[in-house]
Simulated assay, not measured.
Amino acid sequence: MHVRAVAVTTTALLGVALTAPLSHARADEAGDDGPTVVAHRGASGYAPENTLAAVDRAAELGIRWVENDVQRTRDGELVVLHDESLARTTDVEEVFPDRSPWKVKDFTAAEIARLDAGSWFGSEYAGARVPTLEQYVHRVEHNHQKLLLELKSPGLYPGIEQQTLKVLANEGWLDRRHVAGRLVVQSFDADSIRTVHDLKPAVKTGFLGTPAVSELPAYAEFADQINPSYGSLSMSYVSAVHAFTGPHGRPLEVLTWTVNDADTARRVAGYDVDGIITNKPDVVRYAVD
C-alpha cells in the first residue's frame, strides 16, 4: 500500500493479481485498483447474519473476505453472534420464555445450539444455528475465504482476546499464511485490540471508530487499520490515516462500514479507502469495479 499507483500500473501491465495484505489482495474482490469488499456478518443482505449460510452466500458471490462477531457463552464457548441478546436473530423467546433478557452470556453453548437462527430471515433458512467460532472458521477455511473477526463487547468477557487467539491457533489460523493475508482482528474497544497485539504481535488488528487525527500516532502503535463508519469519513481523514505507519511497518489502512448502496460505495471508494464492509457485497463490488 502506498506505492498504490505503481502497484496498479504494474498489475495492469503484467496482468498479475496482487496477493499480500488485505489492501493489496484486491484483484478477486473488486477492481485491481478498487477497495477490498468485505461481506458484513457474511452476505447478511441475502442470508441470516453470522450463520454458515451467510458465509456460503458470500462465497457464491465470489467474495473472499467475511466479517463476523464473537461472544462467549455462560460455560465459556465462543460463538458467532452480533447482539448481546439472542432475541433478535433466534427463537430464544419461544424456547426459553422465562429467561429474559436472553443475554448470550447467560446461556450455555448447548442451549444456544438448540436455537433456530435462520427462520427470522426467511423460511428457507429454518433450522440454521448459531455457529461456534470453531465451526465458523472451518467453513471460512473450506471456502478459501479470509476473516475479519470482531471481538464484540469484550468488556463483558474478560480474557476473550487470549481465548479467541487460542481457538484460532488450534484451528490453524495463526500460521504465517493466515496472519500474512487472511486474518484481521478488530474491535470498538481499543484496550482489547491492544491486548490482541501484545499477545500475538504478528496478527493484524483494526480499531472500529474514528479517532481524532491527533490520536492516530497512539493507535498506530497497536492497530494496522482504522475502520470508521462511512458517515464519519472524508477524503482528508483517510489521507491523514494513510500518513501513519502501523505496527507492521505499513501505512495504516481504512476499512469503512456499513455501505449497502452503489452511490455511497463509489463515494467512499473515491476517498481511497482500502476496504468497504457491506451487507450486499455484490452491489458494492459492481459499483467500485
Rank of each mutant, 00 (worst) to 15 (best):
D33C: 07
A240I: 13
L255H: 14
Q162R: 14
I226R: 00
A20Q: 11
T245M: 08
S44I: 05
L81M: 13
D261G: 05
T36L: 13
V80N: 08
E221A: 14
T73D: 08
I226M: 03
G15Q: 12
E161S: 08
A30W: 12
D28P: 05
A240S: 15
S100F: 08
D28K: 04
R285T: 00
T36A: 14
R64K: 12
S187L: 11
L14W: 07
V259R: 00
H197V: 05
R182H: 12
D224N: 14
L147A: 02
S85Q: 01
D175V: 09
E93T: 15
T19M: 07
L22I: 13
G127R: 06
L255I: 13
F121K: 11
A39R: 00
A180R: 15
D106V: 03
G231R: 04
T132N: 04
V196F: 03
V283C: 11
Y286T: 09
A265R: 02
T164I: 04
A220N: 10
V6I: 12
V238Q: 09
S153D: 15
G181R: 05
D189P: 06
A126R: 14
A109F: 11
F96L: 05
A126W: 01
A169M: 11
D83K: 08
T278P: 10
R129K: 15
N143L: 11
G122K: 02
H2D: 15
A218P: 06
A30K: 00
A169R: 15
V213Y: 10
E94Y: 08
A265N: 12
V66E: 08
P35G: 01
T108E: 09
L18E: 15
V55P: 11
A262M: 12
L168R: 04
I160C: 05
T90N: 05
D189C: 07
T19W: 14
